[in-house]
Structure formats: C-alpha cells, structure tokens
C-alpha cells in the first residue's frame, strides 16, 4: 500500500515525453496508472521515475478510428463509430471506477495475458502508432504483442495511438469472456470480427486471450469460417478447431486449469463469433 520512492515528471507533449524517457533511463510511463500503481503499491515493481503522459491532449482524443493511447476505457466504451468488440470489451474491463481512470494505451503496453483489450485489438488487426519523439513507426497488432508482459515497444518509445478500422456494413465484431471470479480479468477471452458479403463470410479474424503468454490469433477458426454462411452449425464446427490449434503449453491457475481454459476457448470463440455474425447480418 506504500510505493517506494520515485521521481515524477509531467510531459506536456509527446516530444517532451520522449525526451524525458531518454533523459531518465529506467523511467516508466504513467497514463491512468491502473497497471503500474497497483504494482508499485505492492512493491512488485520499482521504478526510478514515472513520466506522466496522462495530460497530453493529443493522446486523450478519439478521432475516427484513431484512439489516443491515454483514452480511458470509459471513453472508448462510450465512443461512437468504433468496432463493437472494442466498445464491448472496454465496457467490461474492471469496474466503472477502473474504467474512468484506466487507459487503453496503458493497458496494452502492460500486456497482461489476461487483459481484455489486447485480444480484441488483435482480432481487429489494430495498428499501434509508436513514437520516439522525432521518429515514429506503426506496428500491426500481430507484431505488437510479443510475450508475457512484453510488447514491441522499445526503450525510449511510447505508444501514442491505436488505430482500428471502422466497421463497414456487413462487418461485425464481438468479445466474450469467462471472468476470473476474483479479479474479473479474463481466464478466457475471445474476440471475433467477421465480414459477410452476399450472405457468405468473406473475412474473419479471431483472437483469444488468457490462454497463452500474450493475445493469440487463431488462423484455423478464421479459415474455417470463410465461405460459410455463419450459421450456427458452421460457427460451432469452426470454433472446435481452436482446441487443437492452441499450443500445448497453456496458462492455468487455481481458478481455471489449462485443460479447462482450452475447453472453454471453444465455447467463448463460438459465443464471440456468433455475436459478431449477428452484428454483421444486421
């Protein structure tokens, strides 16, 4: 409940944040603080300095599909024009008070394997806009999440925005999760995005979370959905594929064993795809 000492710097711009990061090796970024402050309170992590990027106006706005990294979950949940899976997942992170402070960028940069948004952003093929001050780069979701609490972000870089495509008519997405009864993090989270043209699925993307070290994309389920009408039977058949497709080594704990999570991956993929298909058909 009592963090150890650290220095605190407040950046007024992305450039200043990058500069501060360079000046203070070992410093961490602070957005809403809902990943880092809990760790600091328990002294599970220590930092020499925090660089507060939470007030940078550019990072706090949603423009079309471009979501500033410091937008809160509540902001994302309430925003119009974003894919349904994203608003759905954002509205189920933690609880209202957590959503009022926790940020999308902070959450994905922390890359907890059980968090909701990485799974959704992977399914939506989101693009991660990264800055180092003067230079910038864009990383696709599939390359952004690299491991347990690990991302493509390098020393001195900061995530400035996450870009998702607006859902065109015929496209639908959804997120479904099996919650940890204590923390409400996902023991299994599944996100799906499907597109239907002339009654047939022409594009599908499916990702799961809570199962592996980081958000994981299912190619086989997505592949099996293509060319189907996304009726209950084909969704059910396609969803079964994830069970064998998942790697051998899955996460497990006292709340849900690896075996159970594997079995549940099918259930929640099916639920997510079913809901996504219903939205696509609307």
């Amino acid at each position: 409940m009592y963090p150890s000492s650290f220095e605190y710097y407040r950046a007024e711009s992305v450039r200043e944040a990058a500069k501060l990061l360079k000046q203070h090796p070992g410093a961490k970024l602070l957005a809403g603080g809902h990943s880092i402050i809990p760790l600091l309170k328990l002294r599970q992590t220590e930092v020499s300095a925090l660089i507060d990027i939470g007030r940078i106006a550019d990072l706090r706005a949603i423009n079309g599909g471009m979501i500033g990294a410091c937008c809160t979950y509540a902001q994302v949940a309430a925003a119009g024009g974003l894919p349904a899976a994203l608003t759905e997942a954002a509205s189920h992170v933690g609880d209202p008070a957590v959503r009022a402070r926790g940020t999308i960028g902070g959450g994905v940069a922390h890359a907890d394997p059980a968090s909701d948004l990485p799974t959704v952003l992977l399914a939506l093929n989101a693009k991660f806009h990264i800055s180092k001050g003067r230079t910038a780069r864009v990383v696709p979701a599939i390359k952004f999440f690299t491991g347990l609490y690990e991302t493509a972000l390098k020393e001195g870089e900061l995530l400035v925005a996450i870009e998702v495509d607006a859902e065109a008519r015929g496209t639908g997405s959804a997120y479904a999760k099996l919650e940890n009864p204590a923390s409400r993090y996902a023991m299994v989270g599944a996100a799906a995005s499907v597109t239907i043209v002339n009654g047939v699925c022409t594009d599908a993307s499916v990702a799961v979370g809570g199962l592996t070290t980081h958000a994981w994309r299912s190619k086989r389920v997505a592949g099996a959905l293509l060319e189907t009408t996304l009726d209950a039977d084909s969704i059910s058949k396609a969803s079964k594929r994830i069970v064998k497709e998942l790697p051998d080594d899955l996460l497990g704990d006292m709340h849900a064993s690896a075996d159970y999570r594997r079995a549940m991956s099918q259930v929640f993929v099916e639920r997510a795809v079913t809901a996504a298909a219903a939205r696509a058909k609307k």
Partner: peptide
C-alpha cells in the same frame, strides 16, 4: 484496487483514490 472503499470523485468521475497518485 478491488474493494472500492476509497472511491471519490475526481473531476466528476468516480475513481479509486488508492490508484491515483496525489501528483496526478
């Protein structure tokens, strides 16, 4: 940051005051 006992309003929104630094 689970129990909510410390909930206050910060600029009109309910937040957990145990998960906000005073400097923030």
């Amino acid at each position: 940051s689970q129990c909510g006992s410390c909930t206050v309003h910060l600029d009109g929104e309910a937040v957990k005051a145990c998960t906000v630094l005073a400097v923030q």
